[in-house]
Design a protein around this nucleic acid. Structure first.
Lengths: 210, 210
DNA sequence: AGGGCGATTATACTTAGGTTTAAACAAAAT
DNA sequence: ATTTTGTTTAAACCTAAGTATAATCGCCCT
């Protein structure tokens, strides 16, 4: 089910790239070593669980800028920073941005491996959650406008009668839509449907971009 | 409704205590300056929104130990670390532990004030959430064992018929309990009750300590 | 002994929810 | 022009949920 994990190393120093790559390969990890950030952006994040190992000092934008960019582009991947010349504000910034770890050279191999395991674990959990949400979203997409409207009301606990009055149709029509919603969303029960709606962060209808 | 925010300063250096106290008072904040951690532990956290300003280098345990202690004791309060002699691993550790900010001396007054505002905002949100959960918990406490059992089944979407069969009572008894649950929990609807259960992190029944 | 509480159930209704079948209509797509 | 899709509704049923009244039983406390 879950593909093999990938570690992406981004460092402009070929020596460090190779040494890190060797270390990670030696413990059986699949590694992709890159020299610069654009190379990563171009490919996007791998399918399976992944983790970025990033030098804060990179040509062009710094690792921190990159972290922000990824967040802005809504690309989610755990980041482990390594650095030889970092300072406290930099590390704090990185951690605030959600970094898994911030290691200063020289570090113990085990510290990096531990951080990677943590990063992968987080990514697995995140992927799993994303998958669930994607599935729900796909089901929701199959709903007609009216069905979505009815669903929105249903999950707030309104009665068919009330829904009918509010949107100006007959109660029996609401029942029909409601039944369709349950089927299309594959909801086994009303609490189930309510939880689905919560996972989809129902506001009312649109505004997914905001 | 929400009491006046309190900033707790813990620093063994009286000079720093006074200067920080002065700064925070000057912007209208209520300050409590303490020389050591036990003094804080003794009183517990204030009623209203609060924020800790803590020197990492403290006599006895370090600020980081203290952070862990608070977490272990389940005392929640946002922490801002300040330090003159910190290093990166220390700051990373602090941030991993959920610290709001980690400032190195000398810092700009505004940076501290910003961090405090952020900390207070987080604490307000946390308190609000805690209050809601406490209220729900209080309602849940009023349920009899049977009612809790029925509630647990109801929020998973089971039918009265099924619940009756599963716990070996008649359907009408389930209905009675179910009605009581709705009343006691002040739930307006089934989706409502399901969400309450989720907020109470329903496993099935006990195991609240774990 | 008596009272209160939790639990259980029955009867008798009422309301809510849900399905099937069938039909009608408009707008969009082929 | 025809088909498809979304929407609407009615009739006829059936099942599920909820309420009120009343009664029984066991247990704990006074």
């Amino acid at each position: 089910m879950s593909a093999r994990p990938t570690i992406i190393i981004v460092d402009d120093d070929p020596g460090i790239r190779e040494s890190l790559e060797g270390l990670l390969r030696s413990v059986g990890l699949q590694v992709k070593a890159l020299a610069s950030v654009p190379e990563f952006v171009k490919e996007g994040r791998p399918e399976g669980p992944a983790c970025l190992v990033l030098d804060v000092r990179l040509p062009g934008r710094s690792g921190l800028d990159f972290q922000r960019e990824l967040a802005a582009a809504n690309i989610h991947v755990p980041i482990i920073f390594i650095t030889g010349y970092g300072d406290i504000p930099m590390s704090v910034q990185a951690m605030k941005g959600g970094a898994v770890e911030f290691l200063t050279k020289p570090f113990r191999d085990q510290d990096l491996l531990d951080a990677i395991q943590l990063g992968l674990a987080r990514d697995r959990a995140w992927l799993e959650n994303e998958q669930v949400i994607a599935e729900l979203r796909a089901r929701f997409e199959t709903l007609t406008p009216r069905e979505r409207e009815v669903m929105a009301s249903v999950v707030t606990g309104r009665l068919n009668k009330q829904i009918a009055y509010e949107i100006g149709i007959s109660e029996i029509t609401v029942k029909v839509h409601r039944g369709q919603v349950m089927r299309k969303m594959k909801a086994a029960s009303l609490p189930d449907l309510a939880r689905m709606a919560d996972k989809l962060s129902f506001t009312t209808e649109k505004s997914q971009t905001c």
